[in-house]
Design a protein around this nucleic acid. Structure first.
Length: 288
DNA sequence: ATGTCAGTCCAAGACTGA
């Protein structure tokens, strides 16, 4: 194994996304996948995807409730010690299927679907902040150095992460309490892998279905991959798979993909070739 | 341009959620 490709994608109904999801797995071949908004029961997910995912070599941890929410982890580098939900998380009023964690190889991975918050005055907003606090506590109680928390955070971390600050003046997703709650999670030792790589590029991950938002790039960056420092340092590539937002029957979210090199103490050497084998040699030779 | 899409109930089109 020469490195691990980790991805997160809010599919906005796994059932409605079945052909797109399977085609995307074949195209991108991620090793670990965090899914959100599967909108399926565990039984329905198994029935719809069990065989297709097993064929592709994935072990599956799905935590669903049926109509809404629903998260999953797919892994072909191991899937152990699965925990459904956030221990001690608030509900509305019942606990919702918004988190699932597992150990995948040398990574402790959590797929999260953070509550939307709806409006600043809505009780769901307070629920969202409280839920984020419990997520922070869970990360801190674990080992942040081997942690990945990825998913739909429903928070744009900074003004760069929305297409228009004015358009969000009265909205959730951009408020100081939400951003503070995210910062508190990161302060346990997690890094925003896409933002580390693309320092001043918006890198939107979500575009409303309405009003031609995708075509006009009126988007938001709300799907994040957070990783402990030793994991984030293994980053070989990090990007938003905008192709998956195009064409027929897309989700309103695009996947985020992060490639990690093998850990320094792994038994296989680095993925990046030495300078003498660099890609530029071939290109310049061809020119000459 | 809040101009879409997905789920539910239940058989069509309202309602809810994002």
């Amino acid at each position: 194994m020469g490195g691990v490709r980790v991805a997160t994608w809010n599919v906005n109904s796994a059932k409605a996304r079945e052909p797109r999801l399977l085609g995307w797995l074949d195209e991108r071949a991620p090793d670990v996948v965090c899914l959100q908004e599967t909108k399926l029961s565990d039984e329905a997910f198994e029935e719809t995807f069990g065989a297709a995912l097993a064929e592709r070599g994935y072990e599956v941890a799905h935590h669903g409730e049926g109509r809404w929410n629903g998260v999953a982890l797919l892994s072909r580098v191991g899937l152990e010690d699965v925990v459904n939900g956030l221990p001690g998380a608030p509900g509305f009023p019942h606990q919702e299927a918004r988190a699932v964690s597992a150990t995948c190889g040398d990574l402790r991975v959590t797929s999260v679907y953070v509550p939307n918050g709806r409006d600043r005055e809505d009780p769901h907003y307070a629920y969202k902040l409280e839920w984020l606090g419990v997520l922070r506590d869970m990360v801190e109680a674990g080992d942040p150095s081997s942690t990945i928390v990825a998913g739909d955070f429903n928070i744009a971390p900074a003004d760069l992460d929305v297409y228009s600050v004015e358009a969000f003046a009265e909205s959730t997703h951009v408020t100081a309490p939400e951003r503070d709650a995210l910062a508190a999670i990161e302060k346990t030792g997690l890094h925003d892998v896409i933002r580390d790589r693309w320092v001043d590029v918006p890198a939107f991950t979500y575009w409303d279905y309405r009003g031609g938002a995708f075509h006009q790039d009126r988007g938001m960056r709300i799907d994040l991959v957070l990783a402990g420092a030793p994991v984030a340092e293994r980053r070989a590539a990090a990007w938003v798979d905008r192709l998956a937002r195009k064409g027929t029957g897309p989700s309103d979210h695009a996947p985020v993909i992060v490639d990690l090199d093998t850990a320094p103490d792994g038994d296989i050497g680095p993925v990046v070739p030495p300078p003498s084998m660099g890609a530029n040699r071939g290109r310049s030779r061809k020119k000459a």
